[in-house]
């Protein structure tokens, strides 16, 4: 039986008061759900499971965008690997992004790794490489770049990282971020500038392909 075949399920009420970070949690409801899953609450596990059914589709979209380096069965295996990875890493979820967005990053990285392995295994012909050449390297580079940016974000102070994520990854305006974080727009902008300056120090200039 699918969870959605039953009567509408009550949303898991997160134990907000117990969440660490207070105002620096962008998605407290999702963090509450994860905490409930880790506490082995069956209803939470069901909700989480239902939400993670997006994983194979994420992998499929990433695979298509990369020029389909993985065959159907390889993409399926990758989705399985991602699902296991998500479970293993669940305790690291901090509510910085929605659960789906957080899980998506695993899809992105795992697909890149699987694609690299698949290409090495298959030793593609010159024609095959030429055919994929315009897509696959660029797609892999995009994942590498995303990994760098997310790593730099993860090293920022929580309040600055939050502003950066809300601005770029969730598309909020500075005013909206201020309202959401209960801080003034000027404070938002100052944090944004500091975050950018710190990330510049970490990332340096982008290495462009010759």
């Amino acid at each position: 039986m699918w969870p959605s075949d039953q009567s509408p399920e009550p949303t898991i009420v997160p134990h907000l008061e117990s969440l660490e970070g207070g105002g620096t949690v962008a998605h407290p409801a999702d963090l509450g759900l994860v905490r409930a899953v880790l506490a082995q609450e069956p209803r939470a596990v069901e909700q989480f499971t239902a939400r993670m059914k997006c994983l194979p589709r994420y992998v499929a979209v990433c695979n298509a965008r990369a020029g389909r380096p993985l065959r159907a069965e390889e993409a399926e295996d990758t989705a399985q690997d991602v699902a296991i990875l998500v479970w293993r890493k669940l305790s690291l979820y901090r509510g910085d992004a929605t659960l789906e967005t957080w899980a998506f990053r695993f899809c992105d990285l795992e697909l890149r790794n699987a694609a690299r392995k698949a290409l090495m295994r298959r030793a593609p012909s010159v024609e095959d490489l030429a055919e994929r050449g315009m897509v696959l390297p660029a797609a892999m580079a995009a994942v590498d770049e995303a990994e760098l940016v997310h790593a730099a974000l993860a090293r920022l102070p929580a309040d600055e990282a939050m502003v950066m994520r809300l601005k770029h990854f969730e598309g909020l305006t500075f005013d909206e971020i201020g309202t959401r974080q209960a801080i003034s727009p000027n404070t938002v902008k100052t944090r944004y500038y500091r975050a950018l300056a710190a990330m510049r120090a970490q990332l340096g200039p982008k290495n462009e392909e010759p």
Binding site: R57, V61, T101, E145, M164, G171, L203, P205, K206
Partner: peptide
Amino acid sequence: LSALEARIEAVASRERELLSAA
């Protein structure tokens, strides 16, 4: 800093687009 901003936005917009497609 503007170049870095564009770089972050490129990563973010790619993620948003892929997520939205899925």
